Structures are given as structure tokens and as C-alpha cells.
Computed example of a mutant assay.
Amino acid sequence: MRNTIVAGNWKMHKTLPETHSLLDELIEKLPTGKQTEIIVAPAFTNLSNAVAHLEGTNIQVAAQNMHQAEGGAFTGEISAQMLLSIGVNTVILGHSERRHYFQETDALLADKVNTALKHDMRVIFCIGEELKDRQNKQYLNVIFNQLTDGLFHLTKEQWKHIVIAYEPVWAIGTGETATPKQAQEIHAFIRQEIDRKYDKNLANSTSILYGGSVKPNNAKEIFSQPDVDGGLIGGAALSADDFSAIVNAI
């Protein structure tokens, strides 16, 4: 009923030769018979080469970000049309590092989502709380506000292009991981809120990924939770052995 997805966010890692080397390893080691969607998100400089390198495989390519404008005087930015012109039709938006380091707000992200959907792109939309939010027991409010401000202006029809990635900020790059119970709690809450805003069919058909220090030794337990539909993988996506083990954990 829902797509299972494992997406690797490479962040600011891998030169072009290193990208080709890792892609070769992934082609060799990743399973080809599974129903799971497999996505990699290299740096902008390597996207076009990655698309060409992966032609004919079951591995898709996503961008890590894009600008909300169609074009213009935005030095250093990349538009939706630029991504589409090189064969990239999926984009990650709202990653916690974009929110934190580049002060991307929910309002700005809503604009980016609108632009992506205008071009029929698929969006992996990231939400998640910081450690202080969890300690203050405000984490459900944070998640609700990010959903409401970033996505709940969309029509039901537009949601077919949306994948949600829950990433507890306190578990990204820290070695800490939400327990399977904690992950399930948030994923079930997200699904409940989609049901309340729209309906149960939409809630049950929306893929919700977990992102936050997923590794081969914890992936199976996390992915076994009923509302977890895969993962948005960071550090472990830079190792073909680790990433393939995580894909095989589903």
C-alpha cells in the first residue's frame, strides 16, 4: 500500500571520482529484486554524472536542495528546471542542516515545496525536533507545526508527490538514535495528523521515513515498526557495505 524507500543523503561528501567509485560499489552490492525504492543524493556537482552512471539500474538520484524561484539573480542556487533538465525529479527539502545552518523557515520551505510540485517533482520533506524540544516535552507540537506550515496547504492530489522523513535533530550525526518505540510514536503521530487534516486513505498511503543515525545494526528493528516505511540515511550511505546492509534490512 505504501512504498518502502531507502534514500542516501551524501551531504557535502565525495568528489567526482569518489562518486563514480561509490556508485560502482552500490551497483554491485545493492539487491535488484527487492520492491524497495533506492535513492542516492550526491552533491550538485555530481548529479548529472550520477544520473548517467546509474542509467539502467534500479537506483534513483535525488537532489539535496533547490531554490524556490524559477530562475533569476540568485548566485550559487539551483532551480527545479535545472534539476529536471539533467534527469533529477526528486528533491530533499527541509533537512535539519538546511533549517539550522541556512535558517530555512517553514514558510520558505512551503514555497520550495510549491515550486517542486509545480514541476511534478517528488519531495522528500524533512521534519524533526531538537533535543530541547524533546526534553521540554514539546516535540509533538514542533512536528505538528512543521507539518502544518510546510505541507498542510497542499491538496490531496498533490500529496502523491510527498514523502516525509522524520529526523530527530538530536540523533543526526551524533551516534544517538531514537529507539524503535520513539520512532514509531512520531511516525504514528504524523500519520494521525494527515488523517485528521485529509483522510485515512491519504494517511495510509503516505510513505514516512526515519532519519537519524540508522546503521546496519539497528536498521532492522527500526524498519520493523508498523509506521516506518524506510529511511533517509546520512553517514552510513557513504559506505556501500553499510548502505546495502540497511537496504537489505527492510
Rank of each mutant, 00 (worst) to 15 (best):
R2P: 06
N3K: 15
T4H: 15
A7M: 13
G8L: 03
M12H: 04
H13R: 12
E18F: 08
T19R: 01
L23E: 04
D24I: 03
E25F: 04
E28I: 06
L30S: 15
E37A: 07
I39Y: 13
I39D: 06
F44I: 05
T45N: 13
N49S: 15
A50W: 11
V51M: 12
E55W: 00
E55K: 15
G56I: 09
A62E: 11
A62K: 12
A63P: 01
M66F: 12
M66N: 06
Q68P: 00
Q68A: 01
A69F: 09
E70C: 00
G71N: 15
F74W: 14
T75I: 12
E77H: 07
I78S: 03
S79D: 08
Q81W: 00
I92P: 01
G94T: 10
G94F: 11
E97H: 01
R98M: 06
R99D: 06
H100C: 02
T105C: 07
L108M: 15
T115P: 05
A116F: 03
K118S: 14
H119Y: 15
R122D: 10
R122V: 07
V123A: 03
C126F: 02
Q135M: 10
Q135P: 04
Q138A: 10
L140H: 04
V142S: 04
I143C: 01
N145T: 13
N145W: 07
N145Q: 15
Q146N: 12
Q146S: 09
G150I: 00
G150N: 02
H153C: 03
K156V: 13
Q158L: 02
P168A: 07
W170D: 10
A171D: 05
A171L: 07
G173E: 11
T174E: 05
T174D: 06
A178K: 08
Q184D: 14
E185F: 08
A188S: 15
I190G: 00
E193G: 02
K197F: 10
Y198H: 05
Y198F: 13
D199K: 14
L202C: 00
N204P: 04
S205Y: 02
T206K: 08
Y210H: 13
N217T: 14
N217L: 09
N218A: 05
K220C: 01
F223C: 02
F223S: 02
F223V: 05
Q225P: 02
P226M: 03
P226W: 07
D227Q: 08
I233H: 02
G234Q: 08
G235C: 05
G235A: 04
A236E: 08
S239F: 08
A240W: 07
A240M: 09
I246P: 09
I246K: 05
I246T: 06
N248R: 15
